[in-house]
Amino acid sequence: MGNNLFGQYSCKNTLIHRLDPRVKILSVVFASIFLFLLKSYYSFVIISIFIVLLIIISKIKLINLLISLRPFLFFFVFIFLMYLLFARAELNTGIITIWRFTILIIIASILTFSTSISQLVYAVEKLFMPLKVVGISPRNIAVMVSATIRFIPLLFLEANNIRDAQKSRLANFKKGKHVYGLVYSLLRKTFSKAANLADAMESRCYRDYNYSHFKDLRLMGRDYVSILFVISIAGVLLWIS
C-alpha cells in the first residue's frame, strides 16, 4: 500500500525526465503561485495547451494522470455544486477555480512521474542549503525525508501484521482498548526500528558535514532553456490576463 503512495515515478528517457529536479520543483512552486494570478479563460486555455505538450514530451500515460486526479473528484464536484446552488452568477469563477486546481495537480503529477524520490530528496537538500546559515542541516532534513519514504511501506506492513495477529486472537477494532493495543504495538516497533536505523547510520559514518553525493546535480543547457521558457510563458500569460 505504501509503495503506491510514492511509486509513481517511471524511468523514461525524455527531456522532462532529464531536467534537473531543482528546476522542476521550482517550476512547480512558481506555477502554483502564478496560477492564482490568472483570471481569464484565454490564459487557462493557453496554459492547458502548454500542459498537454508537457504530457506528450514526458510520455506520461494519460490514464496515470487521471488516476492521480481521482481523489480530488469529490472536491471538484463539491466546489461546482456550491457555486451552482449558492452563487450561480459567479459560476465562471467556480469553473476557473476547478480548472486551476486540475492544472496544479497535473503539474505536480508530472513532477512526481518524471522524478525519482531520491532525486526529489536531493533537490530539496540542495534547495535548503541556505538554511545552513541559521543552523538547520539540509542533509538531516533530506535523510529524514528519505528514511520516512523508505519506511512508510514497512510500517504499513507492520500495521497489517499486528492487526492480523490481534484479529487471530479475536480482537475487535470497534473497541477502543484493541485499537490502543494496535497503536501501542506499532509505535513500539516504530521506535525500535528508528533506534536500529540510527545505529546503522552511525556505524556507516553518518555526518552532516564534509560529505559528498553519489549523483551530483549540475545545471545543464536544457535546464537554463527550460527556466527561460517557463518565464516567457508566464510573461505572455500575464500580458493576456
Binding site: S118, S146, R150, N196, L197, D199, A200, M201, R204
Partner: peptide, 8 residues
C-alpha cells in the same frame, strides 16, 4: 530491514 537507509 532496519539498516537500509535509502530506497534504491
Amino acid at each position: 530491514e532496519d539498516q537500509l537507509i535509502n530506497s534504491i
